[in-house]
Design a protein around this nucleic acid. Structure first.
Lengths: 229, 229
DNA sequence: AGGAACAAAATTGTATACAATGATGTTAAA
DNA sequence: TTTAACATCATTGTATACAATTTTGTTCCT
């Protein structure tokens, strides 16, 4: 895990953020059991704090709590995957539009730095970190649009998308999203809101298209049901 | 409160739902202190469960947790109020569109029953219940659209809207939303998706217009700041 | 051996004890 | 009387003990 015992006094919010990032970066793959004692030992805290963090993550649909069974990194179904991208399609293009109108040089530089860091991570073979940064690009846009409510939703959807990518990604080619992000950056630089909105819309469509959301075998609801013929 | 001691074994989810409804119906107005012992006594459970419920409500922005101070029913700022309706404007019209396409007679009957119940509640002077039902109409549409992810978001936004109405409602006239809901129902009956989308869009605009989101005195961040001249 | 019944262990669910923090009230000095 | 320091009280924060449940392992019977 990320923590040793005697570093700092972890709050439940810090643990939540730490776990969310680990999930987002695929260091904790879908289905991973998150034992309370185990996590408590890792962070040097009691189960009380761990449970608060797991509860928070479950509210964000990043962790599934099974009564009397424990917490597991979520495994979004194909159905859920489609829904997540439907929601993103409703929220993100219009938010990119707003962001373009409010874009400042400073914000532009932030987005540029993000793309740069993602490149660096990819070159260093840190795919998880690259994926995280790629997601942050989208969250950053919502922040620039100055819509914290929508930002919260998008942030959750981005993290869930990372789980979806872990499960349903099919293109073996490296995530060529940087191209799309570059194009968005250009539109932002010109404060071209309409173009930014369109680019975001197609970017999301490309993302969905890069997934295999059809016949992949789904996790069976019950073993019994799965095994009878 | 709603509970006596020896009724049933309340789970944290049940307590969360019960409190959310009480907030939604304005039985717990914005700013109300939600003491842990007090709630625990009311439901006949320990603070452990209460804290889980309060945590859940805080994640939905219906309760504000102040460290070492306790939990309070949220008091959304004007800024937040605008954001909530911005988010609704992005999500709900398109969702109404989808719902119209998938509308069945059974779902139509459900919506009709909802409107009927709201009328009955209004006639009985149960304004809180009417407000709740009015919100449920919107959530129901998302459910009919078969978009559970978006439904979760809309459900949260609806509850937050109830807090916003409690704080910023200005028309003294009764909530004449039923007209808008009736019009929507007609569009749904005809499976007229485009009209449903338009009606939802203007319905939300009307709602915002019925609020006073301008010069109302906002809760000061600090007393000091508020009192120096 | 195969399988059912039972026993043991591990893990989560809940309540509670204690610590930490903040609010309130009182006293004493100026 | 004012005000600061202190003491008391109430409430939340965290850890832990115990109960409930599930899982795993063992034994015994067929």
């Amino acid at each position: 895990m990320t923590a040793t015992e005697t570093t700092k006094p972890w709050t439940s919010e810090m643990v939540t953020a730490d776990l969310e990032r680990a999930i987002h970066e695929h260091r904790l793959p879908p289905g991973t059991k998150l034992g309370e004692d185990e996590l408590g030992d890792a962070y040097g805290i009691s189960r009380t704090i761990v449970r608060a963090a797991l509860l928070a993550l479950s509210h964000r649909h990043l962790v599934e709590l099974k009564r009397n069974r424990g917490a597991f990194v979520a495994q979004p179904s194909i159905r859920e995957a489609r829904e997540v991208f439907e929601a993103r399609a409703l929220l993100e293009p219009r938010t990119a539009h707003s962001a373009a109108l409010r874009m400042t040089d400073k914000n532009l530089a932030l987005l540029q730095a993000n793309i740069h860091d993602e490149h660096a991570a990819l070159d260093a073979g840190e795919n998880g970190r690259a994926l995280f940064l790629s997601g942050q690009f989208h969250v950053e846009i919502a922040r620039i649009a100055d819509q914290s409510t929508i930002e919260t939703f998008i942030s959750e959807l981005i993290s869930r998308s990372s789980l979806i990518i872990a499960l349903y990604w099919r293109r073996r080619a490296a995530l060529c999203e940087t191209q799309a992000h570059h194009a968005l950056l250009d539109a932002f630089a010109k404060k071209d809101a309409a173009t930014a909105e369109d680019l975001m819309k197609s970017h999301l469509l490309d993302l969905v298209a890069s997934l295999d959301l059809h016949n992949v075998q789904q996790p069976p609801k019950s073993l019994r049901e799965a095994l009878q013929k």
